[in-house]
Nucleic acid binder design. Structure first.
Lengths: 247, 247
DNA sequence: AGTCATTCAGGTACCATGTACGCAAATGGA
DNA sequence: TCCATTTGCGTACATGGTACCTGAATGACT
């Protein structure tokens, strides 16, 4: 292989597209990525090591480097594979609220199916084709509302910020429990519980106490809570769109 | 040391508080944490290894484990130390918008001083005393607006989601450049640039193109951009508060 | 003062990780 | 048939977290 200049994984052609002399590749980026995703889903990203992925494929760890330059690039591929599961119509329906609600739900579903997705997505600047596709759909939902591109980008950002954070809140502590090796119930009761109880009983943070003790939304099902927050964001956006304000 | 049951780091007493027989501790959690923060600031979290921190302190790696059960707990301590730098008045001023703007700016400053802070903070469910202090201040800013605790929690969440994401957007690609070992300018031009150019020239994502090419806010100074987004969030919150709506 | 349980310092060691390097096997063009 | 090229992958190295162990320090009790 020629000296690979360091550039985005999306610029580097797949091995099997080549024609000419040389041994035919026995694997593919997609196959490797799919395997990595399966392992990460079942046991966490930290279990998706090069050796483990290769083992699952019945090959040696170093073989993977014929397809992926660095492990970080594999993360980008994993993100994009997960994003590819987000099914959206070809174009906006004209109902921006409905379109964005659909997108938010699909994103949440993908985030729950792949508990590592949001953490990876927000921890590195990646722009895979499927992320672009999804992002374009979000932007397009505001087409026809008379907003300029900066406002559209801002609103889509607001929505993304909420969706990502909400998903993180929903699964964050579950992932932490898994990482520490405790089962979630034990983690909540024995690990985090005593500290929170002590903080609450100290009375040092009265509003925090109210948010823990007096919350009604805390007892909602996760999906309801997600929907609640989503509606609030969409309400906020609607309130800021002049052309929609006098409704 | 007695068999430590696995519980939050904040529940485990410092060694120097103990009285009774035994050698006196030569270090402290604070000292260790401060060293870790310095290294992480200068070279990234991944450089703040147990060996490296211990080396900086002139001791052996295993000595640190007398003060910190696991490396992850050290992360919690680092987060809290960074949060302790966020200076806030003792109570809300009555001007919720001003209070939250102050908080947002202080958070941004801490996030820029410690480029690893937001990534750690949002990647694990942690609740150190300084995070609680800051969170309590945010909640208290809405005291007296007649909102119930769930709405307050929701708005503070909206604000936090924005602030964290905005900081991440501001430094995310710089961190990525550092991780890959390229200087930021090269990374943008040689690594990410060619791909983005190809995407733009393909014309496949017209609204994405407009957001890249026609954006006015993209050319603002980072601080202005942050302020822009912050104002939009605060506007959105204001628009949702019934008691403030008819202004 | 002497004894001793207790605690700290830190070296050694084990295992897992990403990945550089090199060589043999496979493959298609000349 | 030859050979440049590419893949498969074993070996090896540097680096990581941390379990375990020994020896030194220290205060309480006799």
């Amino acid at each position: 292989m020629a000296d690979e200049e360091p550039t985005s994984i999306w610029m580097q052609p797949e091995a099997h597209e080549r024609s000419g002399p040389g041994r035919r590749p026995g694997y593919s980026r997609e196959q490797i990525t799919r395997t990595a995703v399966q392992i990460a889903d079942a046991e966490g990203v930290e279990a998706a090591t090069m050796r483990r992925i290769a083992g699952e494929l019945g090959t040696g760890a170093m073989s993977l480097y014929r397809y992926v330059p660095r492990r970080d690039d594999l993360f980008d591929l994993m993100i994009d594979l997960a994003m590819s599961e987000i099914e959206l119509p070809d174009g906006p329906s004209g109902d921006w609220r409905g379109d964005l609600t659909l997108l938010a739900r699909q994103t949440r579903a993908a985030g729950l199916r792949h508990p590592w997705l949001i953490a990876l997505l927000t921890s590195r600047p990646t722009l895979g084709p499927n992320l672009l596709r999804v992002h374009e759909f979000a932007l397009s939902a505001f087409n026809g509302t008379g907003l300029d591109i900066d406002d559209i980008t801002g609103f889509v950002g607001m929505l993304n910020d909420y969706v990502h954070s909400a998903i993180r809140r929903e699964i964050g502590w579950l992932e932490e429990a898994r990482r520490t090796g405790l089962d979630p119930e034990r983690w909540k009761r024995d690990y985090m519980g005593p500290y929170v109880r002590q903080v609450v009983e100290s009375g040092a943070f009265p509003l925090f106490n109210r948010s823990v003790l007096d919350s009604r939304t805390a007892h909602l099902a996760p999906e309801e809570r997600f929907r609640h927050g989503l509606d609030r964001i969409l309400d906020a956006i609607a309130a800021l769109i002049p052309s929609l304000r006098p409704r």
